[in-house]
Simulated assay, not measured.
Amino acid sequence: MSTTAPEIPDRMRANVLTGKRSMEMQERPVPTPGPGEVLIKVRTVGVCGSDVHYYTDGRIGDMIVDGPLVLGHEVSGVIAAVGPGVDEGRVGERVAIEPQRPCRVCRACTTGHLNLCPEMKFYATPPIDGAFAEYVTAPAEFAFAVPDTLSDAAAALLEPLSVGLWACRKAGIGPGDRVLITGAGPIGALAAVAARSYGAAEVIVTDPVASRRERIAAFGATATHDPAAADFAPETLAVDAFIECSGATPAMLAGLRALRRGGTAVMVGMGADEMTLPVQLIARNELVLTGIFRYVDTWPTAIAIAGQPDVDLDALVTAEFALEDAESALNADADPLSMKSCVVVSRG
Rank of each mutant, 00 (worst) to 15 (best):
G220R: 03
A143I: 07
L116H: 02
P234D: 13
T44L: 02
S76M: 04
L69W: 02
N285D: 15
A14E: 07
W299V: 06
S338T: 12
V45D: 01
V268T: 03
S346L: 04
A155M: 09
A189C: 13
S341E: 14
S197R: 02
L316V: 08
T110F: 05
G46H: 00
P126A: 11
G130Y: 02
L17W: 06
P33M: 10
G164N: 03
A14K: 03
P147A: 05
L116K: 02
Y54I: 03
N331W: 04
V105M: 04
T56N: 14
L180P: 06
E286G: 08
I216S: 07
R107Y: 05
V288E: 12
C342L: 13
C117N: 09
E98T: 14
P278Y: 15
M252P: 03
T4D: 06
F122P: 05
A230R: 11
V266K: 04
L337K: 14
V30Q: 09
A153P: 09
N285R: 15
F293P: 01
M63C: 10
D152M: 11
I292A: 12
L277G: 01
S76T: 09
A171R: 03
V203G: 00
G46N: 05
V311K: 00
E327G: 03
A96I: 08
R90F: 05
M270N: 13
A140I: 02
N331I: 06
D10L: 12
E235D: 11
I187A: 05
P278R: 15
D66Q: 14
G271T: 11
G220V: 04
D314Y: 00
I8D: 13
R178C: 08
D51G: 05
E286C: 14
P147F: 03
F144R: 08
A138S: 12
T264Q: 10
V163G: 00
R212Y: 08
V205K: 11
F321S: 10
A189Y: 00
I173P: 00
